[in-house]
């Protein structure tokens, strides 16, 4: 993987394109990352994804300087690596989004802190805090006071998605999930509603798609940067050190269903290599990916997804 790859053969953008940026050297075991290499991987992925070069132009094609960009990380159990989220923020800064317009967030400030994120609420750096840190008229503990409905969902949405953000990035982590089979870029938005526990029935299907289909998510989601540096192939969403899979990759796309479909395929392939059943055979099918496609959120059919390995 190198920046040159993007410069020499910039592919034409496609609706369902997923870029897998792999670089084993980015891993600094047991769980560290080389931030410099992560930056190169990410910039390369975005240039290949958008067909624009240099990276600054590629990012600027996705986000304007006036955008307020909320980077949704996953801090429950096996979590998004803080270096990955920080690198996304760095790329946004580089393309002209001001620091005060960049926010790394999840539902709770305490969970962010526990996952190793530095809490920032003011100053010249991109900010980082949980929904529960917000107080505003018409909200309850950071969530809209009024219930919003999408499909079967009746939830209070985080004021970060309803009021603050003009653009969202799903910085999920690739991991197995005990109910949904896969916890990826779509399920990541369970962290944007106040009552995710109410949406665990039927392997979280159709609820994952319902939440992601809400206008505050669907209408603002611009990019998925799935952290597969240290993925987890079994035992999720909790942290299971013995099931961590040092993949050294980032999955990047603008189609959340396509990214999840590719992630699921990678997960299943790796599980088989470890002698484990597919998640469906294990009683937790990731059927939400197909449901999300049926709802028009993206493409789930792998044959219709252009997968670029860089």
């Amino acid at each position: 993987m190198s920046d040159d790859a993007a410069q020499s053969g910039t592919p034409k953008p496609a609706a369902a394109r997923v870029v897998i940026a792999r670089e084993g050297k980015c891993l600094k075991p047991p769980r560290g990352l080389d931030a410099r290499l992560i930056r190169r991987m990410l910039d390369s992925a975005v240039t290949h994804l958008t067909g624009k070069n240099p990276a600054k132009a590629a990012w600027a094609g996705l986000f304007a300087a006036k955008d307020r960009v909320a980077i949704k990380v996953n801090t429950l159990g096996h979590h998004t690596h803080p270096v990955v989220a920080a690198t996304v923020a760095e790329c946004l800064l580089a393309c002209g989004v001001p620091a005060e317009n960049i926010l790394i967030w999840d539902r709770s400030t305490a969970e962010l802190r526990k996952a190793g994120f530095e809490i920032v609420t003011e100053g010249g750096k991109p900010r980082c805090f949980g929904t529960d840190s917000i107080r505003a008229e018409g909200t309850r503990f950071g969530y809209e006071a009024e219930v919003a409905t999408s499909g079967a969902i009746g939830s209070r949405f985080s004021a970060i998605v309803s009021r603050w953000a003009t653009a969202l990035i799903s910085a999920a982590v690739l991991k197995d999930h005990s109910l949904a089979g896969l916890s990826g870029g779509l399920k990541n938005f369970f962290g944007a509603i106040h009552n995710p526990n109410k949406y665990h029935d039927h392997n979280c299907d159709p609820y994952i798609a319902d939440a992601a289909a809400h206008r505050w998510i669907r209408g603002k989601l611009r990019l998925i940067v799935m952290d597969a540096t240290y993925a987890q192939y079994h035992g999720g969403p909790s942290e299971r050190a013995d099931c961590v899979w040092p993949m050294g990759a980032l999955l990047v796309g603008t189609d959340p269903v396509a990214v999840d479909a590719v992630a699921l395929d990678l997960l299943e392939t790796h599980r088989r290599s470890k002698g484990l059943k597919d998640v469906a055979a294990d009683g937790r099918p990731a059927s939400h990916v197909a449901t999300a496609a049926k709802k028009g959120l993206g493409v789930a059919d792998l044959k219709s997804i252009q997968i670029l390995e860089v």
């Binding site: 305490a110 809490i119 003011e122 900010r127 805090f129 949980g130 529960d132 107080r135």
Partner: peptide, 8 residues
Amino acid sequence: MTILPGGV
């Protein structure tokens, strides 16, 4: 919006 560093 008011932001509280401690959360809840």
